[in-house]
């Protein structure tokens, strides 16, 4: 009985952790589908770099950059005029030999961190990045503390004294009558 009380929440924790571990895998099909969508809209875009490797880089980078007009699409997925312009900028600058970091810096200097789908890790975003881990481990720690306290409380209250134990045994064996002041007596 006592074991059961402890095991059930533990099972819940294990389940939560399993779920958390499963989340990245669940997100992958979604990412694949947006990539497909991006490729589809890229078909509509007039300009494509002749070099396939360069175009692949352009596409990869474009998926990491947010369109400022649509806000919930990357510049690879969006066909807003600004997204087309920014895609052209990315293509032009990569073609001229600048690195991906240079191109990202170029856009961040003009549009801010907002243009990045993945916010950079810095002081202001520490809570954003650390928050989920903080909640998970904080919650788990709190749960463990609670369970420890409860089981020690149960140990303290549920234990029977030697006389109580003998009396219980006698009651079960039918050798004694329940006392009249018992709360369970149906007189």
């Amino acid at each position: 009985m006592q074991v059961d009380v402890v095991v059930k929440p533990l099972r819940t924790i294990a389940l939560a952790m399993l779920l958390a571990a499963a989340l990245p895998t669940a997100a992958q099909p979604a990412a694949a589908s947006t990539a497909a969508q991006g490729a589809a809209s890229a078909d509509l875009a007039p300009t494509v770099a002749p070099d396939p490797q360069l175009e692949a880089d352009v596409q990869e980078l474009s998926h990491k950059l947010r369109c400022l007009v649509c806000q919930n699409q990357s510049i690879a997925e969006s066909n807003a005029p600004l997204a087309v312009d920014l895609r052209d900028q990315v293509r032009e600058q990569l073609a001229s030999g600048r690195s991906k970091e240079d191109v990202v810096d170029y856009l961040v200097a003009r549009y801010g961190d907002f243009v990045l789908y993945e916010p950079p890790l810095k002081g202001a975003t520490l809570l954003l990045w650390g928050g989920p881990a903080l909640l998970l481990f904080g919650g788990a720690g709190w749960l463990v503390l609670r369970l420890r306290r409860r089981s020690s409380e149960l140990d303290a209250t549920a234990g029977l004294s030697a006389t109580e134990r003998t009396r219980a045994r006698e009651l079960l064996a039918g050798r004694a009558q329940p006392s009249s002041e018992s709360p369970e007596s149906r007189s």
Binding site: L68, V69, P81, L82, D85, Q89, R110, Y111, G112
Partner: peptide, 13 residues
């Protein structure tokens, strides 16, 4: 004409 200066100023609308 091509919106390049607009990009330099971070114009998005």
């Amino acid at each position: 004409v091509d919106g390049r200066v607009g990009i330099d100023f971070g114009v998005y609308g």
